[in-house]
Design a binder for these strands. Structure first.
Lengths: 342, 342
DNA sequence: TCTTGGCACTCTTCAACCACGAGTGCCAGA
DNA sequence: TCTGGCACTCGTGGTTGAAGAGTGCCAAGA
């Protein structure tokens, strides 16, 4: 009974604080929520909640503000993921379905996510590691210059311009193209790279130098983690709504947004599987981001989370709404990747 | 004489204000610069400069602040582009030379520019319009799915996955590849697209539907202005140094950074040729960006400016330094594009 | 004619102060 | 266990006054 009401009070505090950005007092609380008790009773509950560390008082004569621990309880036990409206679902579907390629999917997703949640959205490009090699293409640009194109199962395309030591005939090129594809096509990135690196030994000695030159670049671009580290970011303008504490909250986040590696760690360690997960305030390792929360999830074709996406915002954020948006976008993107993989 | 000193005073005001961010008074001015006259004299000059609209007084008992007109005079007549140090030049060269592809060049440039100037940097991806078609590649992914790859002279690669209405043999594919390249390779984008659109009439009727399907996607991706509108942005964290007036200066700029189309107009209309140009404050069409300046230039292979790059910052910025950095980066990127085009 | 020192004046900034009100904690009574 | 009442705390907002920065102007000097 009493326990239940205390939780109801906590939920009401979180909801009101998220909506108003102001410490919420006992009177305002009973006025806005049907708690069925008097402010004095609520005050007693508040005192208990404060004792337990779920809420906190900025100063004696102010209302209460949820602590990180309070938000944690709220997301874990007091809220459910808000279902998206049919209109929103349709909007997501039509916007993402009209993407022309993988980059476009990622770009659209990140913009979509930021407008849906009105937060900063982050989408990691699908990683190479689990994807397979679909095709390797060689195009002679000049007799001593070859464009290498690596097409992956996720739809990702890597290109490199290679300077080769000697001229190469079209026949040589075609022959090499076949060899490369026989070795690597269909393989996972890592296996493909291994197979390719054995290739120079299997070609006629005359072609060996050339082959080696191209294979080196290929394996390099396959093992290159640069592309693992790519992320798209959108909605930085929403930081403007952070309101106060520019220095303590906005600046560190703006700096983090520039450092894609940091961002990746940030959303990567939050989202482990394909469930939407939340990291609140100081729960993360970055002390400078103590007043921000992360809502993230893995996404990818069925049963393999290729990458993560999510939003970053003030601890005072609409968790149910953000979680719903993140989940919905992740599902749609996963479905698109699924289709592309058939 | 007197005119000269007045200009010296203006220059001193601009320099001090840029350095300190505070209205500069007559005493501080004579202390920090060797003007050889007394504060009273400087005051007279200031009064004249204010009369002419070059400086302005926030309130009676404050120092002077340059107006946009004052900055304009400063960049046009009172400053020269600071030469880059040898170390900086080396840093630019080594960083950009180690880029692996066009995207990488752009990414590196924009980061470099933002760290050099400590401003928000913007680099437009080279536009398609002036570039020529280098090669068109077709790759069968499944019997009814073809990956179309369009390689341009700038090193840009566009890819599209196409669903075709009927199965296609390898021979058909090879044949079509040759036809496509005969029609478009070496042509400018626009001419190539025109030639391609005539192609379906020239193939055997049996192949016509298929050809049309692929040609449509190709011409679409060639005329698609999406890729013209791509820009890379970096250094948003530098906005933190804007200091005061978050709402009037930082927020509109943050919003503009999200709208790539706006950004492109912003730097596009500043930079007309390959000279570094400056737009100061309200000189531009965006009233919301009245307190920001843009330093931009065109870049590209010799004699053809393909795209623009530049920095955006507060009107109170280090113009000589920014102009030097913009010019230096533009030159290096142009050189790299030049080499890639041989 | 230009420059300079002096002086009165204006206006912002900062700190101190005070009244107000929001919100609390606690207690006695239902 | 809940509730109304009451004293208490403390931040907020407005006012006031002193300090300081900077100016404009004027008369005298070069």
């Amino acid at each position: 009974m009493v326990e239940d009401r205390k939780l109801a009070v906590l939920r009401a505090i979180v909801e009101d604080y998220v909506a108003t950005e102001e410490p919420v007092g006992s009177r305002a609380l009973v006025e806005r929520h049907q708690l069925g008790v008097s402010p004095a009773t609520v005050r007693n509950d508040m005192a208990a909640l404060e004792e337990e560390g779920f809420i906190h008082q900025p100063h004696t004569s102010a209302g209460r503000v949820p602590t990180d621990k309070g938000y944690r309880l709220f997301v874990d036990r007091l809220s459910s993921v808000k279902p998206m409206s049919a209109a929103e679902k349709r909007a997501i579907a039509t916007l993402l379905d009209s993407a022309v390629d993988l980059d476009d999917v990622v770009q659209r997703s990140v913009r979509l996510l930021s407008t849906l949640t009105r937060q900063v959205a982050i989408v990691q490009y699908p990683t190479l590691s689990r994807s397979t090699v679909r095709h390797i293409e060689l195009v002679a640009i000049t007799p001593t210059r070859v464009m290498l194109i690596l097409i992956l199962s996720t739809g990702r395309v890597e290109q490199r311009l290679v300077e080769i030591p000697a001229e190469m005939s079209d026949d040589q090129l075609a022959d090499l193209r076949i060899r490369l594809n026989q070795a690597a096509a269909g393989e996972r990135i890592a296996d493909g790279a291994a197979a390719l690196s054995r290739l120079p030994d299997a070609v006629p000695p005359a072609d060996r130098a050339l082959t080696k030159c191209l294979v080196d670049v290929l394996t390099d671009s396959m093992s290159d983690h640069r592309s693992d580290e790519r992320v798209a970011v959108a909605g930085a303008a929403n930081l403007a709504r952070f309101g106060d504490n520019f220095d303590t909250a906005v600046r560190p986040l703006l700096e983090a947004l520039e450092e894609h590696v940091v961002l990746l760690k940030l959303i990567g360690e939050v989202a482990v599987g394909d469930a939407v997960t939340v990291r609140i305030g100081h729960e993360g390792p970055y002390s400078q981001l103590a007043s921000t929360s992360v809502v993230a999830t893995g996404y990818g074709p069925t049963d393999q989370a290729l990458a993560t996406l999510g939003v970053v915002g003030p601890t005072r954020m609409d968790y149910p709404g953000s979680m719903a948006a993140v989940r919905a976008v992740a599902r749609y993107v996963s479905r698109i990747l699924d289709e592309g993989q058939q």
